[in-house]
């Protein structure tokens, strides 16, 4: 009788383990669905940008504004941050707290660099009188690139909170799950940036 009770207890325990793993999978799946909604969000903004790209109303065009080397610098910062972010995830999977924190810190700095470069660019344009009130094209430009920037900001905040969490509690099942999601998020923003780089900057510079 006692045996049966322990067996059913242990079955219950292993059932709960399975349940936890299933729950984690569900969370990751849910995060994918969220990223899909974000995809639609950016797709709408891209569509808006493409519609308005030539509506400069006498204001500057993309070709007149953008400096490709500068944008390339931004791009390198972000791409590198994606790489270091991947390393952070690898270290986390090996449950190495210090290494994880190091790579996360580096990712954070690179992300911050990217963001500062972007804001500096915005500031420069605005000071020349080419703010978002100038034309439909500029409204679309600031909004599309700015929305990406806002996502990066959220990502940085997330990273900071997570670093704090790991620092206090180490790498647990929960924190590992979150680092995975964070990493998905960061890579997603990378992909969005590639599209921004191509559609906004590259095509913008080509279409004189």
């Amino acid at each position: 009788m006692g045996d049966l009770a322990t067996t059913s207890l242990s079955i219950a325990k292993s059932n709960r383990k399975i349940e936890q793993i299933e729950n984690d999978n569900t969370t990751l799946f849910g995060f994918w669905v969220y990223l899909m909604t974000d995809c639609v969000l950016f797709a709408s903004l891209f569509a808006t940008f493409v519609v308005l790209r030539n509506n400069t109303f006498g204001g500057p065009t993309g070709a007149q504004l953008f400096s490709m080397p500068y944008v390339l610098l931004e791009t390198m910062a972000l791409l590198t941050s994606s790489f270091t972010n991947g390393l952070a995830l690898l270290s986390a999977q090996k449950r190495k707290v210090k290494q994880t924190l190091f790579w996360m810190g580096l990712t954070f700095v690179l992300g911050l660099t990217f963001l500062s470069l972007e804001l500096a660019e915005f500031h420069k344009f605005a000071r020349m009188g080419d703010s978002w009130t100038r034309s439909g094209f500029l409204s679309a430009y600031y909004t599309l690139v700015g929305t990406h920037g806002a996502h990066i900001t959220i990502g940085l905040l997330w990273m900071a909170v997570m670093a704090f969490y790991i620092f206090k509690r180490g790498i647990t099942r929960v924190s590992l799950k979150r680092i995975r999601m964070m990493s998905m998020f960061w890579h997603f923003l990378d992909v969005v940036w590639i599209f921004i780089f191509t559609i906004v900057y590259l095509f913008g510079a080509l279409h004189a």
Binding site: V51, T133, G136, Y142
Partner: peptide, 16 residues
């Protein structure tokens, strides 16, 4: 913020 996505003028596009 005075942007021009859907305004009649300044290159906005209401049909968008």
């Amino acid at each position: 913020f005075g942007m021009h996505f859907f305004t009649s003028s300044y290159g906005g596009n209401m049909m968008m």
